[in-house]
Design a protein around this nucleic acid. Sequence first.
DNA 1: TTATATTTGACACATATTGTCAAGTAAATC
DNA 2: GATTTACTTGACAATATGTGTCAAATATAA
Lengths: 102, 102
Amino acid sequence: METVGQIIRIKRESQGLLLRQVAAHLDIDQAILSKIERNERKPTKENIIKISEILNLDKDELLVQFMSDKIAYEIADEDCANRVLKVAEKKVKYLKAHSVKN
Amino acid sequence: METVGQIIRIKRESQGLLLRQVAAHLDIDQAILSKIERNERKPTKENIIKISEILNLDKDELLVQFMSDKIAYEIADEDCANRVLKVAEKKVKYLKAHSVKN
DNA sequence: TTATATTTGACACATATTGTCAAGTAAATC
DNA sequence: GATTTACTTGACAATATGTGTCAAATATAA
């Protein structure tokens, strides 16, 4: 199972790009990118979007990985993790059905 | 679809307890409890546990509601919300299988 | 060595969270 | 209609968390 960080690092290296180069495009210090790639820091949504741009990764796919990482990390140590996800799914359905449309 | 806040308020009133009384047990100001019940503030996990104690609500069930609320709220406005949950489920499975056992 | 890339940790700053407090509102009772 | 009681509201404070910088430390390679 790949983490978002691993996905990013592998792709970056396969393109022969340096931390410094990618970080410049993201407008953050390379130290942060280094940490993101090693899952020591969580990227922001903005980070993810810009990373997908410069590395030619599928933006939506990377965002899915990013958000699912966050959720999984949040609840993985709970016994009831699976129930939480099931109930969340129902609630999302409900919210989507009842939300004001854009 | 009931919110955690609604569940709490209904139970509290059914037991004839005042905000002030329950809040005292939680060791927070009643203003916060009032807001929690009306979904204007999110409870902490500690809040939830203490509320379940004083109101005789099932602790695990209330925690499930609490955590699923949080997750659903986080992602409900994303198109990919359902995919996120599916992927999160896989990640949780993976993490549980590979984590150090307590 | 020297040069280059990455990692690490201390720090700074911003934003979010969690709570207090006191004044405001609403409903019931005297 | 004044008082009491429960609840609500919003301004504020304290703290925690998130996001980033910087410079020194550590590889890695020439």
